[in-house]
């Protein structure tokens, strides 16, 4: 195929399949980061610009838990996920909610401000040096025939699916989950059944941060930590959220996998740097034909 004098390489199906499989693993992390973002958007109707900074902060937490106490990054989830929830809850209740006076455009700027503060604090205290965790099993895995799967990839996939499932169950089965869904669509009605809307907002923010904290645990075994790492995932997570449909859990999951697969195929065919344009390409295509996203409900 001639394309501006540029020849696409041709690969056997096993290479393509292998690439797609590694895309699924990558996509599962995107999905998890996007899950928190889409929950916060769906309920608070704001885009949380601090999401990437919070992911980075959680990755540092996982790193330092390993470095200082030798805690395995996966085991660290037991600490950083509850810690992330409490941090997110207090951040929303104490800072974002109070500073914004209920106006969405202010919330946006407040979250942007928080992200700048966290990133610069990270640069100041942790420096720009990349830090990586060495776990004994990071290159262990098994051969699928078409590709070699390492255990951290498998953990990322399993962890993401499990967390999405648990969150879905929470939203369907518990009173708090139902209250979250009620607040998402009908705040006034929610207040009148006695739901404390400020509390629910903070719970959502807390869950969103708990999701990035879980993602951080799953990422640290394979990705080096530095103050800019959040951007790498969150810009794509924004794409996933819009692609899947703002506020949709299933959309975040499917969108994450789609983006992950297309990104890896793009890298295979177009090279490491150019390959990433497939994300934008898919994104624009979906927006052209389904402006509300794959699983989003049309506005109005």
């Amino acid at each position: 195929m001639d394309f501006f004098d540029f020849n696409l390489p041709s690969y056997g199906w096993s290479t393509v399949l292998g690439s797609a499989i590694s895309g699924v693993f990558l996509g599962s992390i995107y999905a998890l980061v996007a899950l928190g973002l889409t929950l916060i958007y769906g309920v608070l109707h704001i885009i949380n610009f601090a999401h990437g900074a919070l992911l980075m902060l959680a990755m540092y937490a996982v790193y330092f838990l390993w470095q200082a106490f030798g805690i395995d990054p996966y085991l660290a989830m037991l600490i950083v996920v509850p810690g992330g929830f409490v941090f997110g809850y207090l951040l929303q209740r104490g800072v974002i909610g109070k500073a914004s006076h209920g106006r969405d455009e202010i919330i946006l700027l407040v979250t942007l401000g928080i992200s700048i503060i966290i990133e610069n604090a990270a640069l100041f205290f942790f420096s720009a040096t990349e830090r990586s965790v060495r776990v004994p099993y990071d290159l262990d895995g098994f051969d699928l025939g078409v590709t070699f799967v390492v255990y951290p990839e498998l953990a990322a996939l399993g962890g993401s699916l499990l967390i999405t499932f648990l969150l879905w169950l929470f939203m369907i089965k518990t009173d708090t989950g139902k209250a979250i869904r009620a607040v998402a669509k009908e705040r006034q009605g929610a207040r009148l059944v006695g739901i404390n809307v400020d509390h629910i907002f903070a719970v959502c923010f807390g869950i969103g941060v708990a999701c990035v904290a879980a993602a951080a645990s799953l990422l640290v075994p394979t990705y080096a930590v530095h103050p800019q790492i959040g951007y790498l995932f969150v810009l794509i997570a924004f794409t996933v959220v819009v692609l899947g449909g703002m506020g949709s859990f299933v959309g975040a999951l499917v969108g994450g996998f789609l983006i992950g697969i297309f990104e890896q195929l793009g890298r295979l065919y177009l090279g490491e740097s150019l390959g990433v344009i497939t994300i934008s390409f898919i994104f624009i295509l979906v927006l052209l034909f389904r402006p509300s996203g794959l699983f989003g409900k049309p506005a109005g």
């Binding site: 139902k178 869904r181 998402a184 669509k185 009908e186 006034q188 009605g189 929610a190 009148l192």
Partner: peptide
């Protein structure tokens, strides 16, 4: 307990 004008039921539930 107030039953508000416009009902304000939770439409997505």
């Amino acid at each position: 307990i107030q039953v508000p004008e416009g009902r304000r039921v939770f439409p997505n539930m």
